[in-house]
């Protein structure tokens, strides 16, 4: 048993890939791997977010902390985040966030002079680095559809009335979602087990057309369909199945247990990854794998030192920390 290898070769098949949304299948692997990737995407893929705000003038209705919190939650384009340094590990500065390795400076200087309410949006944030700017998904879409007028783009920070002014300096830093949700690049990361649906054809044929229709409609999601020509029940979208067991219950209620059998495939997962826009959804996945690898490396290295800690027994593992 010592040298049995559990190595598997997972495959990824991309179904749909846009900048902010990606759908893919992950096959031939375990729930632990799928979940590890999900967890890393949410909590450990680094991004940039405003972390420090120095307010010079604020005569808006929102108070300073309120504004700082809102600024922090604005997603910034963080393609550079992977190679940047965490501000606390930065050698160039003493972590006071004034160097190019770990920080980006933003300036906001707005004053309302007209009678109309002025919307201060993420567009008003002036970045010191042209690569690190607030995400503008509305703007991107507007380019395509021309739906939003340009002045309404961007993420709203605060509204100003005549005479109100806002002047501040903000510093964005690298961080991970574990520390604060503002550093999480993931809007949604979720997976589901692929369902395996088997219809018992002989039992199904014993149903009348109305019964078939009734059975098909008992599913809240559109998994099955009644073929109008052949009058046969076919599975159209197995993934729409939400494991609600409605159809199974219905079959039992109709007196036909075993009409359909649904299992989940234990080794294939359908991922849906949606990004905040800070990094592309695909990049987020790649970064997650990268981070997972580096964590595994850390475990491998720790293994060598583990013998020395043996005297502590289980405590040793705790002392080294379960995570990194």
């Amino acid at each position: 048993m010592e040298n049995v290898s559990y190595q598997r070769f997972p495959t990824v098949r991309i179904r749909d890939m846009k900048d902010d949304v990606m759908k893919f299948e992950l096959r031939d692997t375990d729930a632990s791997v799928a979940n590890a990737l999900r967890r890393i995407m949410i909590a450990e893929v680094p991004t940039l977010a405003i972390d420090l705000v120095e307010i010079e003038t604020n005569s808006s209705v929102l108070n300073d902390e309120f504004l700082a919190h809102r600024l922090g939650l604005i997603p910034l384009i963080s393609d550079r985040a992977m190679e940047m340094r965490l501000s606390r590990d930065c050698d160039a500065c003493d972590g006071d966030g004034r160097c190019d390795f770990c920080s980006i400076e933003f300036h906001l200087n707005v004053k309302c002079t007209s009678e109309q309410t002025l919307d201060v949006t993420s567009h008003d944030l002036q970045s010191s680095d042209p690569d690190v700017v607030p995400v503008d998904s509305a703007g991107r879409q507007a380019d395509v559809s021309g739906f939003d007028p340009p002045e309404h783009r961007g993420i709203l920070i605060v509204k100003l009335r005549k005479g109100q002014e806002l002047k501040l300096r903000a510093i964005a830093r690298k961080g991970i979602g574990k520390d604060h949700a503002k550093w999480s690049p993931a809007a949604t990361v979720t997976f589901q087990y692929e369902p395996d649906i088997h219809i018992n054809e002989t039992l199904m044929e014993s149903l009348s057309l109305d019964e078939k229709r009734e059975w098909v409609e008992s599913s809240p999601t559109k998994v099955f369909e009644l073929d109008p020509i052949s009058q046969q029940v076919v599975v159209v979208d197995p993934e729409a199945y939400t494991y609600d067991e409605e159809v199974i219950k219905k079959a039992e209620a109709m007196g036909k247990p075993g009409l359909v059998e649904i299992y989940s495939k234990e080794d294939s997962f359908i991922f849906t990854v949606e990004s905040t826009g800070a990094i592309k959804a695909s990049q987020m996945f790649i970064n997650a794998i990268e981070i997972l690898k580096s964590k595994l490396d850390a475990v491998r290295l720790a293994f060598d030192t583990e013998e020395a800690d043996d005297q502590f027994g289980e405590l040793g593992a705790h002392m080294r920390g379960g995570g990194m």
Partner: peptide
Amino acid sequence: TLVNHGFSYSGKDFIYSGITGYP
């Protein structure tokens, strides 16, 4: 309304554990 939007009529959802990834 819930069923029309693909939810169970009872308001119950099929949920995965965030720690293990198992349902």
